[in-house]
Design a protein around this nucleic acid. Structure first.
Lengths: 347, 347
DNA sequence: CGCCGAGTCTACAACGTTGTACTCCTCGCG
DNA sequence: CGCGAGGAGTACAACGTTGTAGACTCGGCG
């Protein structure tokens, strides 16, 4: 059906290798021959069969990206950035969704479907530190996120603790003292929730503000609705606070909505800070002050690191930990200076 | 490096074809032989090389999905649904971003990178009806969206005109008479904007309400910020209206924000309706009344239609047009019954 | 005049898999 | 006892490409 090197070669009256040479711009070809071959290529509309090329070369020109779910804006924006970076590097991206399910993540790691790619950028959510040795795989792998540390693969992630600490310090500096948390995970030490909560506590400790369990809202999945539900629970149990730190933007936006429904003004009564700097955070009402954790850099770095490992799989070198810079993005939901100082509840 | 059939065959003391037969559950194999082969497979951790299998079989087990940008929530949710449906069909998805740029779209259609996939689900944005013959490609293709009709490929899309008409009728039924539009494209006949505007006009005509250019807001790209900008322009030029129909949710949300900033109450002063039923629409303040255009069905149908064409490329049959059902999702930004009747400006 | 090297091109094998055609063996039946 | 049917396994080619080794030609130099 589709034209092959053989067809072109026959039409041009040369060997298939000569056609191959023309395509790869091998220098020693007579102009006349080259012209004839090019003519034949055009005539047949020949395009190389990448599958055959892959088999021959051992490279596919594709990488895989595994994320929990594209429906989560954070991962959609991550995927967009990865695909863009990959395009610049000349490779395409195969996207898998794991649903954040540990079993599916483990299955994916040893799935032969990956044989169609040269390497994997993997953002686990269900796996944990105990699964660290499952990251020992026979292909180039770059791990994202904060579920697993000190693994055998390169790891690109953000400064969760420092960034969360900075966000909390920002709220403290603006005069808030009772900062509620939305999205904590019970007993978690690593993982986004655990690390960000640690940064929060560090900031409180440093400022001499007591940590108060009663204003810590727990929820497992970071879906939109959970931020709302979590905030509703806090309000229902009569928690008192003058600020909210949503452990990601989605949670913060859901929580902010419930706050407003309940008659509280943001930021006058309650300041709200998120984490991720989603596109959407700039367009909520009020717009959301948040932490830009350096996602764009993470995507670029993940791709370039993976491409390095692919280019040179043997010159392994020890696994690297690469950390993005973060910054606080100041918007309306939490101005740096407290606009309308309400009565601050003290303990 | 990785084990091949040869390695397994040598270890098990059989021919490579026997190993292949074991893997494919060919029935006529002695239990003892099968056991030996399976033992060898386990010992070497053999997994088949999918590239080689693809070359041999002519099928890759991957399909491509080309969308303008995953950063646009609509396409992120579409991609999520397509990947999920593809997984159920046993294929993986390679995602490309075109940026909605016509040249990149045309390039993609004849890119040899597609040779790594069995077919393409293509959502063009930059191409138009004039490019219809460029959809004549030598591989299975399913087109989404409303940029091109009556092309040579299967087309899965939504009932834009009917759905927009229904949305407008919904607003009219709730007592609104001056319905502003956000996101119109000047002079466009087909394309999402053109079709939805047509539905809007049909509804106005049917209700005997005059069409008024002065409350039609234009913008090209349907990014978040443009909905806001578009609404600001309407307000600046003193347009008067008691409802807004954002031609998609993103625009509607941006516009709603500006409305509220300007002191107007939603829905009391101005009702707002969107289009797409993004996840996010349920969590804005107020939550957004919108049109669910059947995206989930579109994704599933696109995948199954493509898989059919892949399975049977010859039994072509004429290109099909498949249309999803829609429904109005009633939320707070536009209740079915007008809550707080304000003074309705009449012409 | 003969030989060397560079330029131009070709033949062949290989990547790992699977379809086809074949061989060998065993068993049952006439 | 001979023959055919079918079970069990093998050898080989092919998918389309590219790397390697080599063939052939021609001009220039000793």
């Amino acid at each position: 059906m589709a034209a092959t090197l053989h067809d072109v070669a026959r039409l041009a009256g040369v060997s298939i290798k000569t056609v191959s040479n023309v395509i790869h711009e091998y220098p020693h070809i007579r102009p006349a021959t080259r012209a004839r071959v090019e003519q034949a290529i055009a005539e047949l509309g020949y395009t190389p069969n990448l599958t055959a090329r892959s088999l021959r070369s051992g490279r596919t020109g594709a990488i895989a990206l595994a994320v929990p779910e594209l429906g989560l804006s954070y991962f959609a924006e991550l995927a967009a950035a990865v695909i863009e970076a990959a395009e610049e590097a000349g490779v395409v991206v195969l996207v898998e969704q794991t649903g954040g399910d540990r079993d599916r993540e483990l299955e994916l790691l040893r799935s032969p479907r990956l044989k169609m790619t040269d390497g994997l950028i993997f953002s686990p959510l269900g796996m944990g530190q105990d699964d660290v040795d499952r990251l020992e795989v026979p292909y180039p792998l770059v791990v994202l996120g904060e579920r697993i540390f000190d693994g055998p693969a390169d790891h690109v992630t953000m400064r969760n603790v420092e960034a969360a600490r900075a966000a909390t310090e920002y709220l403290l500096a603006s005069g808030r003292r009772r900062i509620a948390i939305i999205g904590a995970h019970e007993g978690e030490v690593i993982g986004s929730a655990g690390l960000r909560l640690r940064g929060y506590r560090e900031a409180l400790d440093a400022a001499g503000v007591a940590y108060d369990e009663s204003i810590i809202g727990h929820t497992t999945l970071w879906h939109r609705s959970n931020g709302a539900r979590c905030m509703r629970e806090l309000l229902d149990r009569g928690a008192e606070f003058d600020a909210v730190f949503g452990l990601n933007d989605t949670l913060a936006l859901g929580a902010m909505r419930v706050l407003q429904e309940s008659g509280r003004r943001v930021p006058e009564d309650v300041a709200v800070v998120g984490f991720d700097d989603l596109d959407e955070a700039g367009y909520s009402i009020p717009s959301l002050t948040t932490v830009d954790p350096g996602q764009a850099w993470i995507a670029r770095t993940a791709v370039s690191t993976l491409m390095e490992r692919i280019a040179d799989p043997d010159a392994a070198g020890p696994p690297r930990l690469l950390l993005a810079d973060f910054r606080i993005v100041e918007r309306e939901s939490a101005p740096a200076d407290r606009l309308a100082p309400a009565a601050v509840p003290t303990r």
